[in-house]
Design a protein around this nucleic acid. Structure first.
Lengths: 127, 127
DNA sequence: CCGCATCCGATTGGATACTG
DNA sequence: CAGTATCCAATCGGATGCGG
């Protein structure tokens, strides 16, 4: 067996070179995924969007303690990442909704896994 | 069909009451999972630990840009959450290693999923 | 109805120097 | 070797007030 730059355990855990970073790097898949759910309230906003399109005031209703500023920031963040989009209906009165893009739907398995892992952590005592 | 407090989509996405929070809450599984991977360099330290036990200087070698301060913080954080443990061998010279606990091993599927989702996000164009 | 602008206190993490 | 301690700049997020 010849020398290999990539060891077996390395391949299993980080299949591509992008995962073997020596420092935080936006090109690392793990960083990219975390970027999408980063910040307080972000996963809550995503959860709402996973339930379906939502108007601004619907967020304010289901997440009462979320301020205008942070909500605006989160929607801008998700929009900038191409995970959600702002849709303005052409009727009257004009209605604005935010909805997940196909890209945003890619977060569903991650959210499920976060939920599953978190449940495991919460149910198994730390010590 | 009678009225239900919990709708079907709700059950699928957030199986238990803990997932239907109206604000950020440590008791929410998603928050609990994110707490474990929170902070710059954290997933990199976890990745190293998923490869096996590591000494302090091994971290400094494989993650050269990681400062003493943050490394210490991350190891303390993971230890406090019961995800890693500090093991001091009784031989001479004394050797110190950090290794994942059984609880910490629970993060492996999450790391894999973060990697998978991130790869999907990086390979599908935002627009 | 759907936000944006500003202020400000708290948290974060990098740089640097020091210790058992 | 295996960390601590201190300082500081940047980021984050809550409160409040304004605007199309």
């Amino acid at each position: 067996m010849t020398h290999q730059t990539v060891r077996d355990w390395d391949r299993a855990l980080v299949p591509t070179g992008a995962g073997r970073t020596a420092a935080p790097d936006p090109a690392c898949p793990v960083e990219a995924a975390l970027e999408a759910v980063r910040g307080r309230w972000t996963t809550l906003v995503i959860r709402e969007l996973l339930h379906g399109p939502r108007g601004y005031r619907e967020f304010r209703r289901t997440l009462p303690a979320l301020s205008d500023k942070v909500l605006t920031e989160r929607l801008a963040q998700l929009t900038a990442l191409g995970l959600a989009e702002r849709v303005e209906t052409s009727g009257f009165p004009t209605r604005v909704v935010y909805r997940l893009t196909a890209r945003g739907e890619a977060l569903r398995p991650l959210m499920t896994e976060l939920y599953r892992t978190g449940t495991e952590l919460l149910t198994t005592p730390a010590r």
